[in-house]
Design a protein around this nucleic acid. Sequence first.
DNA 1: ACAATAGAATGGTCTGACCATTAGATGCGC
DNA 2: GCGCATCTAATGGTCAGACCATTCTATTGT
Lengths: 234, 234
Amino acid sequence: MDQASISFDTVRSARLFEEICDQIKGQLSQGKIRPGDKLPPERDLAGQFGVSRSAVREALRALEVSGLIELRKGAKGGAFLLEESAPLTQSMEDMIDLGRVSMRDFTEARILITEVVVRLACERGKKKDFNAIERDIERLEAAVEKGDGRSDATYVTNFYDLLAAATGNQMLRFLTHGIAQLLAGLISARRPAPMHDLGERRRAILMCLRARDADKAGKLLTEHLMRVHARMEK
Amino acid sequence: MDQASISFDTVRSARLFEEICDQIKGQLSQGKIRPGDKLPPERDLAGQFGVSRSAVREALRALEVSGLIELRKGAKGGAFLLEESAPLTQSMEDMIDLGRVSMRDFTEARILITEVVVRLACERGKKKDFNAIERDIERLEAAVEKGDGRSDATYVTNFYDLLAAATGNQMLRFLTHGIAQLLAGLISARRPAPMHDLGERRRAILMCLRARDADKAGKLLTEHLMRVHARMEK
DNA sequence: ACAATAGAATGGTCTGACCATTAGATGCGC
DNA sequence: GCGCATCTAATGGTCAGACCATTCTATTGT
């Protein structure tokens, strides 16, 4: 047989905690454990795996950093499987924090991707999706009325999550969520002046979605995002 | 003062290893330590931070999982700051492995994003960028001639990395790299039949880039990626 | 009833030890 | 001298057992 055609998997890396991670991920992907569930306490896990508590801890730490579990202390605490964890957020934050990606590049990528998302949402969105967006806008406007429109990164990100949801593509949802999360962090840090016509603008986009006018929706959105960017730079 | 306008930062989480992570990230973002550097041994770090080795280990584990450092054992081993780490790859792999994103959605997102990238590369790419792509295609074809064209995920991903580089947007580079990495993993796992006209197709796209014909470049690329997808599904 | 307190569960940290792997130094045979 | 085997030190990986801090629950006292 041709020598070159033989291939090996990279050898199991000889690190216990990785093996433990993989087993837990395995259980998760097979549905034997599910989001929301609680893993056994560290001491029990150590017993079940036949390793020390340290090895288990390193594995749990790795899973936590990967965004798969959350660790709570105290009685009734433990390692809880996260729901729809948005795994990309942390990595993106790192990229910005460490200066590996400039704000400018981030914004540009955001605009490009969001435009793709809105176009796809335009093609595929169902009435249900659009109604959800409308309700979100109403909540936003009600909140702005009451004056508590600044503290809530939630209102900022929710819109984009719903937009991505309308595409029906889970990968785009994660991506969009990560980007929106990151942006929300920046907003709450910089506290730019509130945008009075936010609801109005979003409504305009929603109308395009319902009219299936992808070009106009994309254009409105891009324009809006550029204005947001301009505000952030001041 | 309006009660609602007061805000607190989330309280410093009382976990030592996070503090350590943050300090190391801080040094990194201030350029006091740089990619390629080696951090002091765990035992020394423990001394410097005034904590136990366990706390340091958890911090290093977290940084490793985040894709910021690499741990090598043995003499001359240690924690090395990674270069242009592609932090998103691991998270994306998890999404697929855990079944949170279907292959279909992933491919669709890949196609959409790559099309955006190729269009932008078309607008902005310099001669230098296109020449680099051309050399890469030549290397690919040479490798295929010699018959070692199957084992190397490198040749698969390199093209897309170079494409993304031509956009000049670092965020898109990371994103594209993550996607390509993940795909490379899938390819080397499934070993589909080699694509004999890969070089030819890439050359066609390159021609469009040089001619600044974004529409055609996007079209060719999308078509190509769909064929790749079809092959993977078999 | 209600509040204060005690207790148990559980993650976070510490100490100190030993193991496994790696790079380099040492030494032996030729 | 050269080359190969061996030894040594450095360093991450793991272990064992302890204690601390936090959080929930149950009991107790008023």
